[in-house]
Design a protein around this nucleic acid. Structure first.
Lengths: 161, 161
DNA sequence: CACAAGCATTGTATGCATGCAAGTATCGCG
DNA sequence: CGCGATACTTGCATGCATACAATGCTTGTG
């Protein structure tokens, strides 16, 4: 019934457990940082805001593609974001059949709030660590990130960021 | 437009960036590990399975409470899980107005698959790190987890685990 | 035993996400 | 200039999540 720490299988590294556990802590932080935003917009909607905030205005079709939904689906999502005041439709003067979706200040603010909140929470934890541990963590995490490679953007979007 | 690494505010620790970045890598892993499961059940449904897998059978009301939804909402969710073969309703002989929800083997298997997949992905990354970095990571992550404290179960549930 | 309290399911209704198919406006090429 | 291709939007339909109110058993207590 319980999730025992696995009977130390063959290839098991002793660090695996620590990492799995830490990932839960980190997840808790990430989740907590998103709660306020999710009271304003849905997860799929928030994903759109995140994408826009790191890319700038994009065409409807491109966004639909990035999010892995059909264009028609995305049209409604965009409708809701626009209605909510989080995003704005802009027409491209150079090609009037294209519609660009852009963040409003409110939309950008929502994403920034989450990002900053998350930073604060993480910093909070770091500040409670011994300086030596903290330094080691910095070095080791860089190595970890390196070894992990770029998380496919699509993967991250599964969970909304 | 871009998410600049913040203009090195006052209290900023140099490790914050590394941690934020690593958290993205970790999130990518977690997300990827869940993708297969999410093709079978929805996120809210998966959360139920996760809770059950670490607690054993629970009463409907308790589960609804844990998930932060009304009992009526949860009844339907349970319906879907039962229909899908992931969970089973059991009546408590000792108190026949109570209904327990329990994982089926399929349900337990689904959760285990995700957990194991996640472990594998993490181990994969760790194996690509220099042994020294890996050791440091282990030590430092334990300290991090410690400093972070137990992530409130409710927080974790926001993202489905 | 009768009745209030406890526990879950059902009826009803809303909103979001999603997709297929049809419709509309615009562009670009011949 | 006209017609096929592009880029979105709309109509229509489904499924999930959600909640409030009403209903139906069960328990426990007086």
């Amino acid at each position: 019934m319980q999730s025992r720490p696995a009977e130390a299988a063959d290839g098991d590294l002793p660090e695996t457990d620590a990492t799995v556990t830490a990932s839960r802590a980190l997840l808790g932080i990430i989740a907590r940082s998103m709660v306020p935003a999710l009271e304003s917009v849905s997860l799929p909607q928030f994903r759109v805001l995140v994408v826009l905030s790191s890319s700038g205005p994009l065409r409807m079709g491109v966004l639909a593609e990035k999010l892995g939904v059909t264009i028609s689906t995305f049209t409604r999502t965009a409708d809701r974001l626009v209605t909510g005041g989080w995003a704005r439709r802009e027409s491209n003067p150079a090609n009037r059949r294209e519609v660009l979706l852009a963040l409003t200040d409110a939309g950008r603010g929502l994403v920034n709030t989450v990002t900053e909140h998350r930073r604060l929470l993480i910093e909070d934890v770091l500040e409670r660590m011994a300086p030596a541990d903290r330094e080691h963590l910095g070095v080791a995490l860089r190595a970890f990130t390196n070894a992990a490679g770029e998380p496919a953007a699509a993967d991250l979007l599964v969970l909304g960021l």
